[in-house]
Write a protein that binds this DNA or RNA. Structure first.
Lengths: 232, 232
DNA sequence: GTATGATTCAAACAACTGTTTGAAACGAGC
DNA sequence: GCTCGTTTCAAACAGTTGTTTGAATCATAC
Protein backbone atom coordinates (compact mmCIF):
# COMPACT_ATOMS: atom_id res chain seq x y z
CA UNK A 1 0.00 0.00 0.00
CA UNK A 2 1.05 3.57 -0.64
CA UNK A 3 1.25 5.72 2.45
CA UNK A 4 -0.96 8.76 2.19
CA UNK A 5 0.69 12.07 1.39
CA UNK A 6 4.07 10.53 0.66
CA UNK A 7 4.94 10.99 -3.00
CA UNK A 8 6.87 7.98 -4.14
CA UNK A 9 7.77 7.50 -7.79
CA UNK A 10 6.91 11.10 -8.59
CA UNK A 11 7.80 10.53 -12.22
CA UNK A 12 4.94 8.15 -12.94
CA UNK A 13 2.42 10.17 -10.97
CA UNK A 14 3.36 13.45 -12.59
CA UNK A 15 3.53 11.95 -16.06
CA UNK A 16 0.02 10.57 -15.64
CA UNK A 17 -1.30 13.89 -14.42
CA UNK A 18 0.32 15.81 -17.26
CA UNK A 19 -0.91 13.38 -19.88
CA UNK A 20 -4.41 13.36 -18.43
CA UNK A 21 -4.54 17.14 -18.25
CA UNK A 22 -3.67 17.62 -21.89
CA UNK A 23 -5.93 14.81 -23.07
CA UNK A 24 -8.87 16.13 -21.06
CA UNK A 25 -8.49 19.47 -22.80
CA UNK A 26 -8.39 17.82 -26.20
CA UNK A 27 -11.20 15.30 -25.82
CA UNK A 28 -13.01 15.83 -22.50
CA UNK A 29 -13.23 13.53 -19.50
CA UNK A 30 -15.59 10.92 -20.82
CA UNK A 31 -14.01 10.68 -24.24
CA UNK A 32 -10.53 10.17 -22.80
CA UNK A 33 -9.76 6.54 -21.93
CA UNK A 34 -7.32 5.22 -19.37
CA UNK A 35 -5.38 3.59 -22.21
CA UNK A 36 -4.99 6.92 -23.96
CA UNK A 37 -3.66 8.50 -20.79
CA UNK A 38 -1.21 5.75 -19.91
CA UNK A 39 -0.21 5.57 -23.54
CA UNK A 40 0.71 9.24 -23.73
CA UNK A 41 2.38 9.10 -20.31
CA UNK A 42 4.37 6.03 -21.30
CA UNK A 43 3.35 4.06 -18.23
CA UNK A 44 1.46 0.88 -17.55
CA UNK A 45 -2.31 0.81 -17.72
CA UNK A 46 -2.73 -0.34 -14.13
CA UNK A 47 -0.64 2.49 -12.72
CA UNK A 48 -3.56 4.92 -12.74
CA UNK A 49 -5.58 2.69 -10.46
CA UNK A 50 -2.50 2.00 -8.37
CA UNK A 51 -1.62 5.66 -7.83
CA UNK A 52 -5.02 7.29 -7.78
CA UNK A 53 -7.54 4.52 -7.17
CA UNK A 54 -9.98 5.30 -9.94
CA UNK A 55 -10.50 7.56 -12.92
CA UNK A 56 -12.68 9.95 -10.95
CA UNK A 57 -9.95 10.40 -8.35
CA UNK A 58 -7.47 11.10 -11.13
CA UNK A 59 -9.70 13.81 -12.53
CA UNK A 60 -9.97 15.40 -9.12
CA UNK A 61 -6.22 15.28 -8.59
CA UNK A 62 -5.61 16.91 -11.98
CA UNK A 63 -7.60 19.86 -10.69
CA UNK A 64 -6.48 19.86 -7.11
CA UNK A 65 -2.76 20.12 -7.78
CA UNK A 66 -3.23 23.45 -9.58
CA UNK A 67 -6.51 24.80 -8.27
CA UNK A 68 -5.42 24.86 -4.65
CA UNK A 69 -2.45 27.01 -5.61
CA UNK A 70 -4.54 29.23 -7.87
CA UNK A 71 -7.12 29.98 -5.21
CA UNK A 72 -4.48 30.69 -2.60
CA UNK A 73 -2.92 33.17 -5.03
CA UNK A 74 -6.28 34.83 -5.50
CA UNK A 75 -6.73 35.18 -1.76
CA UNK A 76 -3.18 36.47 -1.36
CA UNK A 77 -3.82 39.14 -3.97
CA UNK A 78 -7.05 40.15 -2.29
CA UNK A 79 -5.40 40.35 1.12
CA UNK A 80 -2.56 42.43 -0.29
CA UNK A 81 -5.05 44.97 -1.59
CA UNK A 82 -6.96 44.94 1.69
CA UNK A 83 -3.77 45.59 3.64
CA UNK A 84 -3.05 48.55 1.37
CA UNK A 85 -6.57 49.89 1.84
CA UNK A 86 -6.31 49.83 5.64
CA UNK A 87 -9.92 49.01 6.30
CA UNK A 88 -11.39 51.07 3.47
CA UNK A 89 -13.49 49.24 0.83
CA UNK A 90 -11.51 48.07 -2.18
CA UNK A 91 -12.00 49.50 -5.66
CA UNK A 92 -13.90 47.19 -8.02
CA UNK A 93 -10.92 47.02 -10.36
CA UNK A 94 -8.75 45.70 -7.52
CA UNK A 95 -11.16 42.88 -6.76
CA UNK A 96 -11.42 42.02 -10.43
CA UNK A 97 -7.65 42.08 -10.67
CA UNK A 98 -7.28 39.78 -7.67
CA UNK A 99 -9.66 37.18 -9.05
CA UNK A 100 -9.37 37.35 -12.82
CA UNK A 101 -5.91 38.87 -13.11
CA UNK A 102 -4.37 35.90 -11.32
CA UNK A 103 -6.27 33.50 -13.57
CA UNK A 104 -5.15 35.30 -16.69
CA UNK A 105 -1.55 35.27 -15.56
CA UNK A 106 -1.74 31.55 -14.99
CA UNK A 107 -3.35 31.14 -18.41
CA UNK A 108 -0.43 33.03 -19.92
CA UNK A 109 2.06 30.49 -18.59
CA UNK A 110 2.76 28.11 -21.45
CA UNK A 111 5.90 26.69 -19.82
CA UNK A 112 4.62 24.96 -16.67
CA UNK A 113 1.31 23.93 -18.17
CA UNK A 114 -0.74 26.67 -16.60
CA UNK A 115 -2.17 27.50 -20.00
CA UNK A 116 -3.37 23.96 -20.60
CA UNK A 117 -4.89 23.77 -17.16
CA UNK A 118 -6.76 27.05 -17.45
CA UNK A 119 -8.22 25.96 -20.76
CA UNK A 120 -9.38 22.79 -19.04
CA UNK A 121 -10.79 24.72 -16.11
CA UNK A 122 -12.65 27.07 -18.43
CA UNK A 123 -14.33 24.14 -20.08
CA UNK A 124 -15.09 22.41 -16.84
CA UNK A 125 -17.18 25.29 -15.54
CA UNK A 126 -19.91 24.05 -17.87
CA UNK A 127 -19.27 20.37 -17.20
CA UNK A 128 -22.48 18.43 -16.57
CA UNK A 129 -20.92 15.65 -14.49
CA UNK A 130 -22.24 15.87 -10.95
CA UNK A 131 -19.12 14.86 -9.08
CA UNK A 132 -16.97 17.38 -10.96
CA UNK A 133 -19.46 20.11 -10.15
CA UNK A 134 -19.48 19.21 -6.48
CA UNK A 135 -15.71 19.07 -6.43
CA UNK A 136 -15.39 22.52 -7.99
CA UNK A 137 -17.88 24.00 -5.55
CA UNK A 138 -15.86 22.57 -2.65
CA UNK A 139 -12.57 23.90 -4.00
CA UNK A 140 -14.04 27.38 -4.30
CA UNK A 141 -15.86 27.31 -0.98
CA UNK A 142 -13.11 29.24 0.79
CA UNK A 143 -12.63 31.82 -1.96
CA UNK A 144 -16.13 32.80 -2.98
CA UNK A 145 -17.37 34.27 0.32
CA UNK A 146 -14.27 36.45 0.61
CA UNK A 147 -14.73 37.93 -2.84
CA UNK A 148 -18.44 38.31 -2.29
CA UNK A 149 -17.85 40.31 0.85
CA UNK A 150 -15.23 42.50 -0.81
CA UNK A 151 -17.57 43.22 -3.71
CA UNK A 152 -20.51 44.06 -1.48
CA UNK A 153 -18.37 46.51 0.45
CA UNK A 154 -16.98 47.95 -2.75
CA UNK A 155 -20.38 48.55 -4.33
CA UNK A 156 -22.71 49.40 -1.44
CA UNK A 157 -25.32 51.03 -3.69
CA UNK A 158 -25.75 48.04 -5.98
CA UNK A 159 -28.13 45.25 -4.94
CA UNK A 160 -26.13 42.21 -3.81
CA UNK A 161 -27.81 39.84 -6.23
CA UNK A 162 -26.97 42.17 -9.11
CA UNK A 163 -23.32 42.11 -8.09
CA UNK A 164 -23.27 38.33 -7.95
CA UNK A 165 -24.92 37.99 -11.33
CA UNK A 166 -22.35 40.28 -12.85
CA UNK A 167 -19.55 38.31 -11.26
CA UNK A 168 -21.21 35.25 -12.77
CA UNK A 169 -21.21 36.90 -16.21
CA UNK A 170 -17.58 37.92 -15.83
CA UNK A 171 -16.63 34.35 -15.01
CA UNK A 172 -18.39 33.19 -18.14
CA UNK A 173 -16.66 35.73 -20.34
CA UNK A 174 -13.25 34.81 -18.98
CA UNK A 175 -13.63 31.05 -18.98
CA UNK A 176 -14.90 31.03 -22.53
CA UNK A 177 -12.08 33.29 -23.64
CA UNK A 178 -9.48 31.14 -21.94
CA UNK A 179 -10.99 27.86 -23.09
CA UNK A 180 -10.20 29.23 -26.51
CA UNK A 181 -12.70 27.28 -28.55
CA UNK A 182 -13.98 30.21 -30.61
CA UNK A 183 -16.94 28.15 -31.77
CA UNK A 184 -18.17 30.92 -34.05
CA UNK A 185 -14.75 31.48 -35.61
CA UNK A 186 -15.00 35.08 -34.53
CA UNK A 187 -11.45 35.92 -33.63
CA UNK A 188 -9.81 33.15 -35.60
CA UNK A 189 -8.14 35.72 -37.84
CA UNK A 190 -6.80 37.67 -34.87
CA UNK A 191 -4.87 35.00 -33.01
CA UNK A 192 -3.35 36.05 -29.71
CA UNK A 193 0.35 36.81 -29.71
CA UNK A 194 1.98 33.77 -28.11
CA UNK A 195 4.96 35.81 -27.01
CA UNK A 196 2.80 38.43 -25.32
CA UNK A 197 1.36 36.86 -22.17
CA UNK A 198 -0.66 39.93 -21.28
CA UNK A 199 -2.45 40.21 -24.61
CA UNK A 200 -5.68 38.56 -23.49
CA UNK A 201 -5.73 40.38 -20.16
CA UNK A 202 -5.40 43.77 -21.88
CA UNK A 203 -8.42 42.94 -23.98
CA UNK A 204 -10.52 41.22 -21.33
CA UNK A 205 -10.04 43.34 -18.22
CA UNK A 206 -11.58 46.54 -19.63
CA UNK A 207 -14.51 44.49 -20.87
CA UNK A 208 -15.08 42.92 -17.46
CA UNK A 209 -14.91 46.24 -15.65
CA UNK A 210 -17.16 47.86 -18.21
CA UNK A 211 -19.73 45.15 -17.63
CA UNK A 212 -19.44 45.26 -13.86
CA UNK A 213 -19.94 49.01 -13.76
CA UNK A 214 -22.66 49.22 -16.38
CA UNK A 215 -25.82 51.18 -15.50
CA UNK A 216 -28.50 49.06 -13.91
CA UNK A 217 -31.59 48.21 -15.91
CA UNK A 218 -34.90 49.61 -14.82
CA UNK A 219 -36.82 47.49 -12.40
CA UNK A 220 -39.32 45.32 -14.29
CA UNK A 221 -42.59 44.86 -12.42
CA UNK A 222 -42.24 47.22 -9.48
CA UNK A 223 -40.81 50.45 -10.86
CA UNK A 224 -39.55 52.02 -7.65
CA UNK A 225 -37.11 54.30 -9.38
CA UNK A 226 -37.36 55.85 -12.80
CA UNK A 227 -34.48 55.81 -15.23
CA UNK A 228 -31.24 53.87 -15.09
CA UNK A 229 -29.01 54.09 -12.09
CA UNK A 230 -25.23 54.07 -12.27
CA UNK A 231 -23.88 50.92 -10.72
CA UNK A 232 -20.66 52.61 -9.64
CA UNK B 1 -34.99 2.80 -47.22
CA UNK B 2 -36.34 6.11 -46.00
CA UNK B 3 -36.69 8.75 -48.67
CA UNK B 4 -34.72 11.86 -47.84
CA UNK B 5 -36.62 14.87 -46.53
CA UNK B 6 -39.85 12.98 -46.09
CA UNK B 7 -40.72 12.76 -42.43
CA UNK B 8 -42.36 9.43 -41.86
CA UNK B 9 -43.17 8.30 -38.34
CA UNK B 10 -42.62 11.77 -36.99
CA UNK B 11 -43.44 10.56 -33.52
CA UNK B 12 -40.44 8.32 -33.18
CA UNK B 13 -38.07 10.84 -34.72
CA UNK B 14 -39.24 13.70 -32.54
CA UNK B 15 -39.32 11.60 -29.41
CA UNK B 16 -35.73 10.56 -30.01
CA UNK B 17 -34.64 14.15 -30.61
CA UNK B 18 -36.40 15.41 -27.49
CA UNK B 19 -34.99 12.65 -25.31
CA UNK B 20 -31.48 13.12 -26.72
CA UNK B 21 -31.64 16.88 -26.22
CA UNK B 22 -32.54 16.65 -22.56
CA UNK B 23 -30.08 13.85 -21.86
CA UNK B 24 -27.23 15.68 -23.57
CA UNK B 25 -27.85 18.63 -21.27
CA UNK B 26 -27.85 16.40 -18.22
CA UNK B 27 -24.85 14.20 -19.00
CA UNK B 28 -23.08 15.43 -22.14
CA UNK B 29 -22.72 13.71 -25.51
CA UNK B 30 -20.18 11.08 -24.62
CA UNK B 31 -21.73 10.13 -21.32
CA UNK B 32 -25.16 9.65 -22.88
CA UNK B 33 -25.69 6.21 -24.37
CA UNK B 34 -28.02 5.17 -27.15
CA UNK B 35 -29.83 2.94 -24.68
CA UNK B 36 -30.49 5.87 -22.37
CA UNK B 37 -31.91 7.88 -25.25
CA UNK B 38 -34.16 5.16 -26.63
CA UNK B 39 -35.15 4.27 -23.10
CA UNK B 40 -36.33 7.79 -22.29
CA UNK B 41 -37.98 8.13 -25.70
CA UNK B 42 -39.74 4.79 -25.29
CA UNK B 43 -38.58 3.48 -28.65
CA UNK B 44 -36.48 0.60 -29.84
CA UNK B 45 -32.70 0.80 -29.62
CA UNK B 46 -32.19 0.32 -33.36
CA UNK B 47 -34.47 3.20 -34.28
CA UNK B 48 -31.74 5.78 -33.79
CA UNK B 49 -29.55 4.15 -36.40
CA UNK B 50 -32.56 3.62 -38.61
CA UNK B 51 -33.72 7.24 -38.54
CA UNK B 52 -30.43 9.07 -38.23
CA UNK B 53 -27.72 6.65 -39.28
CA UNK B 54 -25.36 7.09 -36.39
CA UNK B 55 -25.00 8.84 -33.05
CA UNK B 56 -22.99 11.69 -34.56
CA UNK B 57 -25.75 12.39 -37.07
CA UNK B 58 -28.29 12.41 -34.24
CA UNK B 59 -26.25 14.99 -32.35
CA UNK B 60 -26.11 17.18 -35.44
CA UNK B 61 -29.84 16.89 -36.01
CA UNK B 62 -30.55 17.84 -32.41
CA UNK B 63 -28.78 21.10 -33.14
CA UNK B 64 -29.91 21.67 -36.67
CA UNK B 65 -33.64 21.53 -36.01
CA UNK B 66 -33.40 24.50 -33.63
CA UNK B 67 -30.24 26.31 -34.64
CA UNK B 68 -31.35 26.94 -38.20
CA UNK B 69 -34.47 28.64 -36.90
CA UNK B 70 -32.54 30.58 -34.26
CA UNK B 71 -30.04 31.98 -36.73
CA UNK B 72 -32.73 32.95 -39.18
CA UNK B 73 -34.47 34.84 -36.36
CA UNK B 74 -31.22 36.63 -35.58
CA UNK B 75 -30.84 37.67 -39.19
CA UNK B 76 -34.47 38.73 -39.37
CA UNK B 77 -34.02 40.95 -36.32
CA UNK B 78 -30.88 42.47 -37.79
CA UNK B 79 -32.57 43.16 -41.11
CA UNK B 80 -35.53 44.74 -39.37
CA UNK B 81 -33.23 47.19 -37.61
CA UNK B 82 -31.36 47.87 -40.84
CA UNK B 83 -34.58 48.63 -42.66
CA UNK B 84 -35.52 51.08 -39.92
CA UNK B 85 -32.11 52.73 -40.11
CA UNK B 86 -32.38 53.34 -43.86
CA UNK B 87 -28.71 52.94 -44.61
CA UNK B 88 -27.39 54.54 -41.44
CA UNK B 89 -25.17 52.44 -39.16
CA UNK B 90 -27.03 50.61 -36.42
CA UNK B 91 -26.64 51.41 -32.74
CA UNK B 92 -24.55 48.85 -30.82
CA UNK B 93 -27.48 48.03 -28.59
CA UNK B 94 -29.57 47.11 -31.62
CA UNK B 95 -26.95 44.65 -32.85
CA UNK B 96 -26.61 43.16 -29.40
CA UNK B 97 -30.38 42.90 -29.18
CA UNK B 98 -30.59 41.16 -32.56
CA UNK B 99 -28.01 38.53 -31.64
CA UNK B 100 -28.29 38.01 -27.91
CA UNK B 101 -31.84 39.17 -27.37
CA UNK B 102 -33.16 36.50 -29.69
CA UNK B 103 -31.10 33.87 -27.88
CA UNK B 104 -32.34 34.99 -24.50
CA UNK B 105 -35.92 34.92 -25.64
CA UNK B 106 -35.46 31.37 -26.87
CA UNK B 107 -33.81 30.47 -23.58
CA UNK B 108 -36.84 31.83 -21.77
CA UNK B 109 -39.17 29.42 -23.56
CA UNK B 110 -39.68 26.52 -21.19
CA UNK B 111 -42.70 25.21 -23.08
CA UNK B 112 -41.33 24.19 -26.47
CA UNK B 113 -37.94 23.11 -25.16
CA UNK B 114 -36.10 26.25 -26.19
CA UNK B 115 -34.74 26.55 -22.67
CA UNK B 116 -33.28 23.06 -22.71
CA UNK B 117 -31.76 23.60 -26.12
CA UNK B 118 -30.12 26.90 -25.23
CA UNK B 119 -28.56 25.33 -22.15
CA UNK B 120 -27.19 22.62 -24.39
CA UNK B 121 -25.93 25.14 -26.91
CA UNK B 122 -24.24 27.16 -24.20
CA UNK B 123 -22.33 24.12 -23.09
CA UNK B 124 -21.47 23.05 -26.56
CA UNK B 125 -19.61 26.27 -27.31
CA UNK B 126 -16.80 24.83 -25.23
CA UNK B 127 -17.20 21.30 -26.54
CA UNK B 128 -13.87 19.72 -27.48
CA UNK B 129 -15.20 17.25 -30.03
CA UNK B 130 -13.90 18.21 -33.47
CA UNK B 131 -16.95 17.31 -35.51
CA UNK B 132 -19.26 19.30 -33.23
CA UNK B 133 -17.00 22.31 -33.52
CA UNK B 134 -16.92 22.09 -37.29
CA UNK B 135 -20.67 21.70 -37.40
CA UNK B 136 -21.23 24.78 -35.27
CA UNK B 137 -18.86 26.84 -37.39
CA UNK B 138 -20.79 25.81 -40.51
CA UNK B 139 -24.16 26.62 -38.97
CA UNK B 140 -22.94 30.10 -38.04
CA UNK B 141 -21.15 30.77 -41.32
CA UNK B 142 -24.05 32.78 -42.72
CA UNK B 143 -24.71 34.77 -39.56
CA UNK B 144 -21.29 35.81 -38.33
CA UNK B 145 -20.18 37.95 -41.31
CA UNK B 146 -23.42 39.90 -41.24
CA UNK B 147 -23.06 40.78 -37.58
CA UNK B 148 -19.38 41.52 -38.02
CA UNK B 149 -20.15 44.01 -40.76
CA UNK B 150 -22.91 45.65 -38.75
CA UNK B 151 -20.61 46.03 -35.75
CA UNK B 152 -17.75 47.47 -37.79
CA UNK B 153 -20.09 50.06 -39.25
CA UNK B 154 -21.57 50.79 -35.85
CA UNK B 155 -18.20 51.34 -34.17
CA UNK B 156 -15.96 52.88 -36.83
CA UNK B 157 -13.48 54.25 -34.30
CA UNK B 158 -12.81 50.94 -32.58
CA UNK B 159 -10.22 48.57 -34.08
CA UNK B 160 -12.00 45.65 -35.75
CA UNK B 161 -10.15 43.01 -33.79
CA UNK B 162 -11.14 44.71 -30.55
CA UNK B 163 -14.77 44.57 -31.60
CA UNK B 164 -14.55 40.88 -32.41
CA UNK B 165 -12.86 40.05 -29.14
CA UNK B 166 -15.57 41.83 -27.25
CA UNK B 167 -18.23 39.98 -29.19
CA UNK B 168 -16.33 36.84 -28.23
CA UNK B 169 -16.44 37.83 -24.57
CA UNK B 170 -20.14 38.63 -24.79
CA UNK B 171 -20.82 35.22 -26.23
CA UNK B 172 -18.94 33.65 -23.34
CA UNK B 173 -20.86 35.60 -20.73
CA UNK B 174 -24.19 34.71 -22.28
CA UNK B 175 -23.55 31.03 -22.94
CA UNK B 176 -22.24 30.47 -19.43
CA UNK B 177 -25.22 32.27 -17.96
CA UNK B 178 -27.67 30.29 -20.05
CA UNK B 179 -25.93 26.97 -19.48
CA UNK B 180 -26.78 27.65 -15.86
CA UNK B 181 -24.15 25.54 -14.20
CA UNK B 182 -23.06 28.15 -11.65
CA UNK B 183 -19.94 26.14 -10.85
CA UNK B 184 -18.91 28.54 -8.09
CA UNK B 185 -22.36 28.54 -6.49
CA UNK B 186 -22.37 32.29 -6.90
CA UNK B 187 -25.99 33.00 -7.68
CA UNK B 188 -27.40 29.80 -6.24
CA UNK B 189 -29.26 31.78 -3.59
CA UNK B 190 -30.78 34.11 -6.19
CA UNK B 191 -32.50 31.67 -8.49
CA UNK B 192 -34.12 33.18 -11.55
CA UNK B 193 -37.84 33.65 -11.44
CA UNK B 194 -39.26 30.85 -13.55
CA UNK B 195 -42.39 32.86 -14.30
CA UNK B 196 -40.44 35.90 -15.48
CA UNK B 197 -38.90 35.01 -18.85
CA UNK B 198 -37.11 38.34 -19.18
CA UNK B 199 -35.31 38.16 -15.83
CA UNK B 200 -31.99 36.98 -17.21
CA UNK B 201 -32.10 39.38 -20.15
CA UNK B 202 -32.70 42.35 -17.87
CA UNK B 203 -29.59 41.40 -15.93
CA UNK B 204 -27.40 40.35 -18.82
CA UNK B 205 -28.05 42.95 -21.50
CA UNK B 206 -26.75 45.96 -19.53
CA UNK B 207 -23.65 43.94 -18.65
CA UNK B 208 -22.99 43.06 -22.29
CA UNK B 209 -23.44 46.63 -23.47
CA UNK B 210 -21.27 47.94 -20.66
CA UNK B 211 -18.51 45.58 -21.69
CA UNK B 212 -18.85 46.34 -25.36
CA UNK B 213 -18.64 50.08 -24.80
CA UNK B 214 -15.92 50.02 -22.15
CA UNK B 215 -12.93 52.33 -22.64
CA UNK B 216 -10.11 50.75 -24.57
CA UNK B 217 -6.93 49.78 -22.74
CA UNK B 218 -3.76 51.63 -23.55
CA UNK B 219 -1.68 50.11 -26.30
CA UNK B 220 1.01 47.88 -24.79
CA UNK B 221 4.29 48.04 -26.72
CA UNK B 222 3.72 50.84 -29.22
CA UNK B 223 2.02 53.65 -27.33
CA UNK B 224 0.63 55.64 -30.23
CA UNK B 225 -1.96 57.43 -28.16
CA UNK B 226 -1.82 58.39 -24.53
CA UNK B 227 -4.66 57.68 -22.16
CA UNK B 228 -7.72 55.51 -22.61
CA UNK B 229 -10.00 56.05 -25.53
CA UNK B 230 -13.72 55.69 -25.37
CA UNK B 231 -14.86 52.78 -27.49
CA UNK B 232 -18.18 54.40 -28.19
C1' DG C 1 -57.88 -10.38 -50.15
C1' DT C 2 -52.42 -9.62 -51.83
C1' DA C 3 -48.28 -6.89 -52.59
C1' DT C 4 -44.99 -3.34 -51.30
C1' DG C 5 -42.38 -0.41 -48.84
C1' DA C 6 -41.59 1.70 -44.27
C1' DT C 7 -40.91 0.91 -39.62
C1' DT C 8 -40.23 -1.72 -35.35
C1' DC C 9 -38.31 -5.32 -32.73
C1' DA C 10 -35.26 -8.71 -30.05
C1' DA C 11 -30.97 -10.50 -30.48
C1' DA C 12 -26.42 -10.55 -31.43
C1' DC C 13 -21.91 -8.37 -32.99
C1' DA C 14 -17.09 -6.92 -32.18
C1' DA C 15 -14.74 -3.36 -29.91
C1' DC C 16 -13.90 -0.85 -26.07
C1' DT C 17 -14.59 0.64 -21.15
C1' DG C 18 -12.58 0.98 -16.10
C1' DT C 19 -10.86 -2.16 -12.90
C1' DT C 20 -8.55 -6.23 -10.76
C1' DT C 21 -5.16 -9.82 -10.33
C1' DG C 22 -0.92 -12.12 -9.17
C1' DA C 23 3.51 -12.42 -10.45
C1' DA C 24 7.76 -9.91 -11.57
C1' DA C 25 11.04 -6.19 -10.83
C1' DC C 26 12.91 -2.71 -8.09
C1' DG C 27 15.33 -0.23 -4.15
C1' DA C 28 16.75 0.70 0.33
C1' DG C 29 18.24 -1.30 4.99
C1' DC C 30 20.74 -4.73 7.12
C1' DG D 1 23.99 -12.21 0.47
C1' DC D 2 18.67 -11.63 2.11
C1' DT D 3 14.28 -9.14 3.33
C1' DC D 4 10.42 -6.19 2.80
C1' DG D 5 7.56 -2.75 1.12
C1' DT D 6 6.84 -0.22 -3.25
C1' DT D 7 6.10 -0.09 -7.88
C1' DT D 8 5.52 -2.07 -12.54
C1' DC D 9 3.77 -5.31 -15.74
C1' DA D 10 0.95 -8.41 -18.93
C1' DA D 11 -3.20 -10.56 -18.78
C1' DA D 12 -7.72 -11.13 -17.86
C1' DC D 13 -12.26 -9.49 -15.83
C1' DA D 14 -17.21 -8.29 -16.38
C1' DG D 15 -19.86 -4.76 -18.21
C1' DT D 16 -21.03 -1.30 -21.65
C1' DT D 17 -20.53 0.90 -26.04
C1' DG D 18 -22.46 1.95 -31.01
C1' DT D 19 -23.94 -0.68 -34.72
C1' DT D 20 -25.91 -4.48 -37.57
C1' DT D 21 -29.03 -8.18 -38.73
C1' DG D 22 -33.08 -10.54 -40.27
C1' DA D 23 -37.48 -11.45 -39.11
C1' DA D 24 -41.94 -9.41 -37.61
C1' DT D 25 -45.29 -5.72 -37.88
C1' DC D 26 -47.56 -1.94 -39.83
C1' DA D 27 -49.80 1.11 -43.30
C1' DT D 28 -51.14 2.00 -47.80
C1' DA D 29 -52.42 0.93 -52.67
C1' DC D 30 -54.33 -2.09 -55.73
Amino acid sequence: MRAIDIRQSPDTRERILDAAESLFVEYGFEATSMRQITGRAGVNLASINYHFGAKEALIQEVFRRRLTWLNRERLNALERFEKEAKGAPLKPHQIVEAFFGVSLRMAADTEQGGHTFMRLLGRTYTEPSAFVRQFLADEYAAVVPRFKQALFRSLPDVPPEEILWRFHFMLGAMSYAIAGTDALQLVAEYELDEKDPGALARRLMPFLLGGLRAPLAEAPAKPREKGPRRAV
